[in-house]
Amino acid sequence: MKPKQTGFTLVELLVVIAIIGVLIALLLPAVQQAREAARRLTCRSQLKNFGLALHNYHDVHGVLPPGLTASANGGWSWGSMLLPFIEQSSIHDAINFKLSPSNGSNATAILNTIPIANCPSDQAPKTNDELSLPEQATTSYCASGGANMYTPNKCSGIEEGVFYHNSKRAFRDFTDGSSNSIVVGEVVWRVTPYMSGNAARNLQHYYGGQVTVPWYHNGDPCGVGSDDNTYRRTFAIIRNAGYPMNVYHAAADTYYDNAHHAFGSHHPGGAHFLFGDASVHFLSEHIDSKTDRTWWPNITDGQDDPSRFTGVYQALHVINDGNVVAIP
């Protein structure tokens, strides 16, 4: 009698392969979600470290660092001032702050990447690709200049945000409460390149670029400014809530792309924000946001009426308008 053969039939083998394929298809999203959860946790922790550094800086100097220095050899970012407070004293000591970031003597120092400055979900390279700025380390975090599109603004002598050119904010200025005021937020690296080879590219860089005078010293009451390089170098460091979170214009081909003014991230659904009390919150990109241009102060109306900042998102970026809102 012929012995009975054992093994899988072709049909059984195909069924097993199909089952394995289904299991892999079910497993991969879970793995990706776990990885993104870990990246979000790291990003949150990094922003927390910046929050503690800002508080330590305030303890030493009595004020927060300037958003961006503007002087004959200015252009240094708030992050540059925090270097000794984030265990980067060696980089701080290698920088000649009497000269601008664009000065060749600082070219080597500003190539140093800052370990806590890049979100693991961000797709930024280690150094920038913006032609109007010196080559330097990138960052995933920018300071908040308030709700006004024109950052930094001094319309009617009022500044509603934490950071602007040569700012010297203290925590006593947070009349809306430090726990209700955004000081730093995530910014997103533009993955899709511009069509034009010589167009401005991404604007999120750590150290800054030469800015000789504040915009509002150019006779513009709202600080819009007419110097394109100053414009770009400022938005590399300071953003605002004049545009909603995660705004993106795929067809844009200039540095006026709205994404260069806005906060955002590669995290699904929103971005992390650091508040004045050093807490970090993940805000949904669907947060209530008023973006009607009629409430933006401009050089025509010369107004900076805090009552215009009615969106929850905008109110969180304003530290002194009396409109205290709960974090969603």
Rank of each mutant, 00 (worst) to 15 (best):
residue 53 A to R: 08
residue 73 N to Y: 02
residue 111 L to V: 03
residue 59 D to K: 14
residue 75 G to D: 09
residue 60 V to H: 12
residue 92 H to P: 00
residue 119 C to W: 01
residue 101 P to S: 07
residue 63 V to C: 04
residue 73 N to H: 13
residue 44 R to Y: 02
residue 97 F to S: 10
residue 41 L to P: 00
residue 112 N to P: 11
residue 87 E to A: 14
residue 100 S to R: 05
residue 44 R to Q: 15
residue 75 G to L: 02
residue 117 A to T: 11
residue 96 N to R: 11
residue 85 F to K: 09
residue 61 H to P: 00
residue 64 L to N: 02
residue 80 S to V: 09
residue 50 F to V: 05
residue 67 G to T: 08
residue 53 A to D: 06
residue 84 P to R: 09
residue 109 A to S: 15
residue 76 W to C: 03
residue 97 F to C: 06
residue 61 H to T: 05
residue 52 L to A: 11
residue 97 F to D: 01
residue 39 R to P: 00
residue 102 S to K: 03
residue 111 L to E: 11
residue 97 F to W: 14
residue 119 C to L: 08
residue 47 L to D: 02
residue 100 S to Q: 01
residue 89 S to E: 12
residue 65 P to E: 04
residue 92 H to D: 13
residue 83 L to F: 07
residue 44 R to S: 10
residue 37 A to P: 03
residue 58 H to M: 05
residue 84 P to D: 05
residue 105 S to D: 07
residue 94 A to V: 04
residue 60 V to R: 09
residue 115 P to N: 10
residue 92 H to F: 14
residue 72 A to K: 13
residue 106 N to R: 00
residue 89 S to T: 14
residue 85 F to E: 06
residue 104 G to W: 00
residue 75 G to E: 04
residue 46 Q to F: 13
residue 48 K to H: 15
residue 43 C to A: 15
residue 58 H to I: 09
residue 79 G to C: 05
